[in-house]
Amino acid sequence: MSFNIVVLAKQVPDTRNVGKDAMKADGTVNRAALSAIYNPEDLNALEQALRLKSTIEGAQVHVLTMGPARAAEIIRESMYRGADGGYLLSGREFAGSDTLATSYALAAAIRKINKVDIIICGRQAIDGDTAQVGPQIAEKLGLPQITYAEEILDFSKREITVKRRLERGVEVVKGALPMVITVNGSAANCRPRHAKLTLKYKNAKTVSERQASSTDYTDLYETHPYLNILEWGASDIEHEPQWLGLSGSPTKVKQIESVVFTAKESKRLTPADGEIEELIKELIANHTIG
């Protein structure tokens, strides 16, 4: 039985470690100063996929990512951890995509991959924190969704039981495949890179990466087909041009401001007993406390 799992993973700027030089003087983001990482919750998603793979005979995990050429790194990283391969969706037609245009393109790519049994995404990407792409893809593909998944409790006969972690509680839900699942950061961490797999896949490349590199390994890629990371452009997926990129993005950024807080006139105190007591008396007198 073949069973196809697609993981959606995105390469994101590491907004958690924003240093002083991350913002340019004009208030825009200096992307060059931020390292590009595997979106954290997409690693949780990958782990759930790998766990499913280990319980279902003949299951395969492929990672789909949309981004610039260097986003192929996400696919390699996934292969080091146990994925079977992946697809990079790349091209200037996709530039300026908001979540809706992103989900339109990714949904089209999933249709092209064909016969996908389950699509597993991260809950949200840290560059925008929107958590929209998963559900939007599900809608476009006409599939049900389970968001905030923390653990796949059971899988049998194409029915899946999932524990969801919500703000104020937990829920256990069940549904039939195919469907879209988005995985929470509270789910199990992704297994580390596997040394053997890292060796096996370190030369896995997309066509553009091979063209950009100085050495020609044509032979290698002919004899080792698993080293070819599939790269698709807009022309490879079935689409209406107006729904891609900027024109397919209903949301527009009107304005961006860097955050500055207006400094208040503050009173400075030392921890001396007298000063603390004065402060407390003042707060009681003006009914802030008491």
Binding site: P13, T15, R16, V18, A22, M23, G27, T28, V29, I126, D127, G128, P250, T251, K252, V253, K254, Q255, I256, E257, S258, V259
Partner: peptide, 18 residues
């Protein structure tokens, strides 16, 4: 005007859907 922090809170963006 849909105003929200972006980029880990380092910027505030105003988004519109024309």
């Amino acid at each position: 005007y849909q105003i929200r922090p972006a980029f880990g809170g380092n910027i505030v963006a105003t988004i519109v859907n024309p």
